[in-house]
Design a protein around this nucleic acid. Sequence first.
DNA 1: TACCAGTGTGTAAGCGCTTACATTGCTTTT
DNA 2: AAAAGCAATGTAAGCGCTTACACACTGGTA
Lengths: 335, 335
Amino acid sequence: MTMTPTLEDVAKRAGVSTATVSRCLNSPEKVVEETRDRVLSVVRDLGYAPNFSARALAARKTQTIGAVIPTMENAIFAQGLQAFQERLGQAGFMLLVASSSYDPDIEEEQIRALVARGADGLLLIGHHRDPNVYKFLETQNVPALLAWTYQTDRPSIGFDNHAAMQALTERALQLGHKRIGVITAPLASNDRARDRVSGIRAALKAAGHPENPLPIIETDYGISNGAAAFDRLMTADLSPTLVICGNDVLAAGALRRAQERGLSVPNDISITGFDGIELANLVTPRLTTVHVPHRTMGEAAAETLIAISQGAWTGESLCLPTEIRFGETLAPPSN
Amino acid sequence: MTMTPTLEDVAKRAGVSTATVSRCLNSPEKVVEETRDRVLSVVRDLGYAPNFSARALAARKTQTIGAVIPTMENAIFAQGLQAFQERLGQAGFMLLVASSSYDPDIEEEQIRALVARGADGLLLIGHHRDPNVYKFLETQNVPALLAWTYQTDRPSIGFDNHAAMQALTERALQLGHKRIGVITAPLASNDRARDRVSGIRAALKAAGHPENPLPIIETDYGISNGAAAFDRLMTADLSPTLVICGNDVLAAGALRRAQERGLSVPNDISITGFDGIELANLVTPRLTTVHVPHRTMGEAAAETLIAISQGAWTGESLCLPTEIRFGETLAPPSN
DNA sequence: TACCAGTGTGTAAGCGCTTACATTGCTTTT
DNA sequence: AAAAGCAATGTAAGCGCTTACACACTGGTA
């Protein structure tokens, strides 16, 4: 097994010191052209690539940003993350991604792993986590930016889940809906979902609705889960005229099952989503949903994190506007 | 600014040597319980986290696997990658992801970056790339596993794009289709797309079809792109009775536009997809498509890469079976 | 009692880089 | 012609870990 070439190998072969080779690679303007050409051609011949660990150890920075997201399968995060990584790449940063499967313990583990790997900064989803995690990040001096949420007490970049869902619900209530069901992602491990549900409750309360018997079905992400949840909602005593879903995927599943059950949407029943992913426009009829600017958020997150890592940051959280996108799944109740 | 604690800080505070602290962390059974407890409690107090770069440098392995995928936004890769990373995580490996936006130069850059970061192995999508890239990987002694493709000359794990598409096309031809159009991802930068199109051509040839005037529209990933491509296909002289799409997303876009144009699918026109993502089942009517076992592939890829990195690998490429999933978008031509 | 194996720790030599500082050999300047 | 400045390069001290090896102690065993 051949050893992979090191800086020293290059230096020896080019007849210079390791310092000069290092300079050729990192600040070429400090080396006279002749030397530089010679060194670089040796680099090419040997197929030399710098050892990142050694470089990071010596230079004390990694040009790496870590992100822990709940899942990669979710189109929401994928799109934002893609934008995030593109922007990072432009600035010469790499992205380390880990996913937690919505499990706080796994998330903490991943955060520690990313910090250990020398991430210059971290992107985290949502705001709710064990205070020790935040303490740990402070001790380690690793800045963390929260996304998909908006908080004033920590650096964050996202939107107001509560207010957005409240606005959508109010709109629906104005149409006269009284019997309402909710399908949401599991609340225990998902603060965005909780914020959205609290937005629904706030709207109900403001409209003077009885608040107790709000049927809520919690289920994992997935179209078929949305469909199953819809069934459960319909077998409850009260058959709703409006089903508010915590995200578009669940809504798409609910919509499909409604149609399979012979219900006409929105004539017999209204259904709303949240997120505004492409899927919302693809189903028939198109979903009425809350549109979230994912790309913008991802790009802004990258810029913010880079700024933080360079010590140039104002410390302001950013709240992006969301907007209700009207499809054809929301209408006044028929009875 | 407080310095983050090092092994030595812990050692000093616990009154032991750095070697002992290191042992407590990496092979606890070698340290007597009393010492270990003392050390670990100091670790906790100080919020110590090992410096990964230093560890990697000293131990000469990173427990990190890199992956370069064309895009994160694509549900196909997302699902496989999620499975990949889950399996890696179980084995104590981390995943470094980079995306290339389907650009070979960017891909090469990303590969170099991942290698420099000490990836113990790489997951790459597809097989076609500059020979120098493979040479570089060999020089660096970094094993690479190709996925979403099946090749016998290099370690790979995937499926036969050509054969799968050929099978689907043959099936369609048996129904009597004569006028056929194709919508595909850009061929230049995507060997899977090329393989699929060559599968179509092979089927046409085998069935004795004239091969030259096969209208092919190349377009980027995206539902609206699929729709636009469908329009272009229909404005061509020959209006097809069958539109074969290179992936489900393009197919979904084509389907939607067909319906918007007042065409009944599959009565007036048949449309097929490829990939078998959830989307295929969500549209109405459901897509007839080729189903690819993404999770299985992702998991197998993880296991293979771990095996390779531990020197325990048989060297066999793996070809997973695909299967035609019949929805309701394929039927005999009406005229 | 002297010897040994076994166990728990310490010592110290790297791992492959970066970078502050020292050195060399020119040009300029005075 | 000597002093000074400057540009290009070399020297070597780490960065924070892992781990081979050395060492000290224990409790058998001969």
